[in-house]
């Protein structure tokens, strides 16, 4: 175990863990949007900024990308940290002014007004969670960031249909601002943002459409399952 202090309290972390993980487990409240414990930390949203004092030197860094190291002191509520977080929150709120979660977080951090032009036609906050889940958890590699600077976008390849997408909906679940939508109509499931529509398979027992064919084929292939494994839906299989 690696001993560190967070806001003066002694805490222990494990080798390979990052500060955010340890702090959240220990009950500290650090705002974050692009972090999810199931994927590798990325450090895009910059909300989990903390001050880290190591060998007498203090610097601001994102807690999610900083590995726990013996003897570091972490300050999660210093004046500097709160000041920086507030401006970042304001910047995010300007990008995504209509989202409830963002509005609530901003309010909690004392961000009352947005001093920038609001991006009414943008919604995504470019946290990259959808692509990381798709790559690291699902393994479909269906989407990625394209372009750089202020033109950065999360898109399917060549801005067309995401041909690798299995319409599993993991991105839909993980998106913090809820801008990736899925709809099911008849025997079709669509992930609207990735322009991906797939035909669904019908359960031999109950007759419900339960998952896209393409997805089930991928699963069978990956897990080397018998041909008829997905003939029956998850519910009817008992």
């Amino acid at each position: 175990m690696i001993p560190i202090t967070i806001d003066g309290q002694p805490v222990e972390g494990k080798e390979g863990e990052n500060i955010l993980q340890v702090a959240l487990d220990a009950g500290f409240d650090i705002p974050h949007l692009c972090y999810n414990e199931n994927v590798k930390p990325y450090g895009a949203c910059r909300l989990c900024l903390v001050e880290v004092v190591r060998r007498g030197r203090s610097r601001m860094t994102t807690a999610c990308t900083y590995p726990v190291m013996e003897g570091i002191e972490v300050l999660t509520q210093s004046e500097k940290v709160l000041r920086a977080r507030r401006m970042i929150m304001e910047l995010i709120l300007a990008m995504c002014p209509g989202d409830k979660l963002i509005q609530d977080m901003a309010k909690q951090m004392g961000v009352e007004q947005v001093r920038f032009k609001k991006d009414d036609n943008k919604d995504c906050i470019l946290c990259g969670l959808c692509a990381r889940v798709c790559d690291e958890v699902v393994g479909a590699h269906a989407i990625s960031f394209a372009f750089r600077g202020d033109r950065r976008e999360m898109v399917p390849p060549f801005l067309g249909e995401a041909m690798n997408c299995i319409a599993c909906g993991a991105c839909v679940v993980v998106c913090p601002v809820d801008v990736i939508r899925m709809k099911e109509e008849g025997d079709e499931r669509t992930i609207i943002r990735w322009k991906r529509t797939l035909k669904m398979k019908q359960c031999k027992v109950c007759g419900n459409y339960f998952a896209p064919w393409f997805q089930l084929e991928k699963f069978k292939e990956r897990a080397k399952l018998p041909k008829d494994f997905f003939d029956v839906c998850f519910t009817c299989r008992g």
Partner: peptide, 13 residues
């Protein structure tokens, strides 16, 4: 603003 990679909110925005 064009040449930032666009990853960090603070730099891109």
């Amino acid at each position: 603003k064009d040449e930032s990679c666009g990853k960090c909110t603070s730099c891109r925005e």
